[in-house]
């Protein structure tokens, strides 16, 4: 019988297999990169809001405490979004004609809440309670990033399960004195100081990492 395959026939399958291997490897690497990328985790992606509220101005430059607006953070699962009245506490007197604040005034006049768009969001199967984290001294900045440096609100950390578990398995370096939870800049704390404080705080509060990564802690 004559030859079935052309002289190049042995090359093409080899090239094909080689390209296939390269493609699969590239796909795996791309996939691995993608799930950690800002595109998927939303880190640093600014979310459109009805009013371009600047945390940089209010929390950073004016130094207003986080809890002035997010009043529920110490006692409730949700930190709480401020009611329109909270904005108007000051803005009834200053920047009263600013076009930027028109939606706020309209909200107050109509009695309809502003519709802010969620920035920091956990999936519904994850149970999260702000109050316990705050009262044990997990500072805001650990999860939300340098909010005081964000002109427009964006997600500061990837809210992946790995992000939660990293801290739950080794909370010590992340803990701070509970009376300073809203402090943003901790650059004067060395790693040793943080670890030392964290160790003592864990002893004082009976924090046991071996229980903190039980499934039922977050998935209830």
């Amino acid at each position: 019988m004559p030859q079935i395959f052309t002289p190049s026939a042995d090359t093409w399958p080899r090239v094909g297999v080689g390209l296939g291997i390269v493609a699969v490897t590239a796909a795996i690497l791309l996939g691995a990169g993608l799930v950690q990328s800002a595109y998927v985790t939303s880190v640093d992606w600014v979310v459109d809001q009805p009013v371009p509220f600047s945390h940089l101005h209010h929390a950073g430059e004016l130094g207003i405490d986080c809890r002035y607006c997010h009043a529920g953070v110490e006692s409730a699962p949700n930190a709480g979004l401020p009611a329109t009245e909270v904005c108007m506490t000051c803005h009834s007197q200053i920047w009263t004609g600013a076009p930027m604040l028109a939606p706020v005034r309209e909200s107050l006049a109509k009695g309809e809440p502003l519709r802010w768009n969620r920035v920091a969001r956990l999936p519904d199967y994850a149970y999260f309670d702000h109050s316990i984290h705050v009262s044990r001294g997990v500072p805001c900045v650990e999860c939300h990033g340098r909010v005081d440096e964000m002109p427009l609100m964006k997600r500061g950390e990837p809210f992946t399960m790995a992000f939660c578990l990293d801290c739950h398995r080794d909370p010590a370096p992340h803990l701070r004195p509970p009376d300073q939870v809203t402090r943003m800049d901790w650059s004067d704390w060395t790693a040793e100081r943080a670890a030392d404080y964290g160790r003592r705080a864990m002893e004082a509060h009976h924090i046991e990492p071996s229980r903190l990564d039980d499934c039922g802690v977050c998935h209830r």
């Binding site: 699962p77 949700n78 979004l81 519709r115 802010w116 969620r118 999936p123 519904d124 199967y125």
Partner: peptide, 14 residues
């Protein structure tokens, strides 16, 4: 489908 958004109303959800 992914259960991240379950059919329930959370706080502040429309």
């Amino acid at each position: 489908c992914e259960m991240a958004d379950q059919p329930r109303y959370d706080a502040y959800e429309p």
